[in-house]
Design a binder for these strands. Structure first.
Length: 437
DNA sequence: TCTGGGGTCCTAGGACCC
DNA sequence: TCTGGGGTCCTAGGACCC
């Protein structure tokens, strides 16, 4: 047995909002999230825009009609077969607001540095120093937090508790979600009875389909076998990931939440799947310009400049066999956050790499971001013209922040193929009510 | 299973420099 | 000039997460 004496022994809570988006919507309609039969649909079935998918389904919608979160709208049961199924539009801004309210509750139970918001509906809290202020047992404290969230916001939460973040996360994903109490507490001593009982490796956070298949080739079919594989072999075959996989199989994770390293956001990117195949260069380039300007506006808003731009192009699936299915290219650039500079780099990358294929999806990412302390002038254009361009971009951003994206658009956005206006009310690609908030 | 959208991290090979 | 060894930067691609 592994000697866990020198591993961290903390009390970490991993708290997840059950069917978060669907629950927020149910509550808005005055329904109990656990009793509602409801799904949040990114685009309604009759919408001409996009293919549409289920973003979230309430527990009953999943149980009663077999809905899943990645289901396509076209695969939904029809009204006759599911008369009580409610389909609602997403409201990202509402979810962001609720998420903040949940975080405010956590702040009553732990110091700011001990809280880590992992995603919009999942947070990790290191309760080592504070749990005893709220009850006699971490389990009871978790219950208390759950009840407070339920009472104040109506939301149901699931809580995994562990001696480190990994154990807490696994306790939540693997066990708490399926328990009546919606709480599970995993210690190192439980590893043989918990982690090693996991047969479907893909249930484990960090192991996806490809890695599971890869492990399979080495006759590693479950977590027990992973834990009993020579780590040297794992290291050789999987590199750093191999060492991590081995540590995970023994429940080992040495990260401490208050010492969390904030990976400062390295990239900003936007992408979209087009509603149809685009084959006309001009139409594709209009969309590229729109996305490029969207990304540029975001990095300006964060007072950053990009030193690297990447372009992703996915082709229509109807490519002849053996042909490339798309390409992704990137280029180091002179630091900038100007619309035109970024768009020109992107268009150059596109023209160099596109050979007339039908395009179905496009994406642009800006990386290697640096503070926008000064404006880098190039020798090619007069300084005053460059500064003026910068000011124009900024003014447009301000107008849009005040009056919304569509208040001011490029004439090209009114042309055939453009998507910016249609998409302007989306948040994170979803209907948000008001994207420029 | 196939085209939602936004991210992060790791690897490997090539270029270039000392 | 050719072979050496080490380091960094850059690009493309893969894998995974919510």
């Amino acid at each position: 047995m592994y000697d866990y004496r020198y591993e961290p022994h903390r009390v970490v809570f991993m708290i997840d909002n059950k069917s978060f988006f669907a629950s927020c919507e149910a509550l808005e309609l005055g329904l109990n999230p656990m009793k509602a039969v409801l799904a949040v649909v990114s685009h309604q079935p009759d919408s001409k825009y996009g293919s549409g998918l289920i973003m979230a389904a309430s527990p009953l919608a999943k149980a009663k009609y077999g809905l899943t979160n990645v289901m396509r709208v076209r695969d939904l049961p029809n009204k006759r077969d599911a008369p009580d199924l409610l389909l609602v539009d997403p409201h990202m801004n509402l979810y962001i607001k609720r998420s903040m309210q949940v975080l405010d509750i956590f702040r009553k139970y732990a110091a700011e540095e001990d809280i880590h918001a992992y995603s919009i509906d999942e947070s990790m809290i290191d309760m080592t120093k504070s749990w005893h202020l709220f009850g006699d047992d971490p389990y009871l404290v978790a219950r208390k937090i759950q009840l407070e969230i339920k009472k104040k916001l109506g939301l149901y939460t699931t809580c995994g508790i562990g001696e480190n973040p990994l154990l807490a996360k696994l306790a939540m994903d693997i066990s708490a979600k399926h328990r009546r109490s919606m709480i599970a507490y995993w210690h190192y001593i439980d590893v043989p009875d918990t982690i090693w009982q996991i047969n479907d490796m893909e249930e484990v956070w960090g192991i996806g389909h490809r890695t599971a298949r890869h492990l399979h080739r080495f006759h590693i079919n479950n977590m027990y076998e992973l834990a009993h594989t020579d780590p040297a072999i794992l290291k050789k075959e999987f590199g750093v990931i191999g060492e991590q996989l081995f540590a995970m199989s023994w429940g080992v994770d040495r990260s401490i939440i208050s010492q969390k390293y904030f990976p400062q956001m390295k990239n900003y990117g936007n992408s979209q799947i087009l509603t149809r195949d685009y084959t006309v260069q001009r139409e594709i380039e209009i969309v590229l310009r729109e996305i490029g300007e969207q990304v540029a506006a975001r990095i300006r808003a964060h007072r950053l400049q990009a030193e690297c731009v990447s372009l992703f192009v996915w082709f229509s699936k109807y490519q002849p066999n053996g042909e490339r299915s798309g390409f992704s290219v990137q280029r180091k650039i002179c630091p900038t956050n100007e619309n035109d500079a970024i768009v020109q780099e992107i268009l150059a990358l596109f023209r160099q790499n596109w050979r007339g294929e039908a395009v179905r999806a496009l994406g642009i990412t800006c990386s290697q971001l640096i503070p926008d302390r000064y404006q880098q002038l190039t020798f090619l254009v007069s300084p005053s013209a460059q500064i003026k361009k910068h000011q124009v971009d900024q003014t447009i951003d301000e107008i849009r922040q005040k009056y919304g994206f569509s208040s001011l658009v490029k004439a090209s956005s009114l042309l055939e193929g453009a998507t910016a206006i249609q998409r302007s009310s989306l948040v994170g690609g979803h209907n948000g009510g008001n994207a420029y908030e």
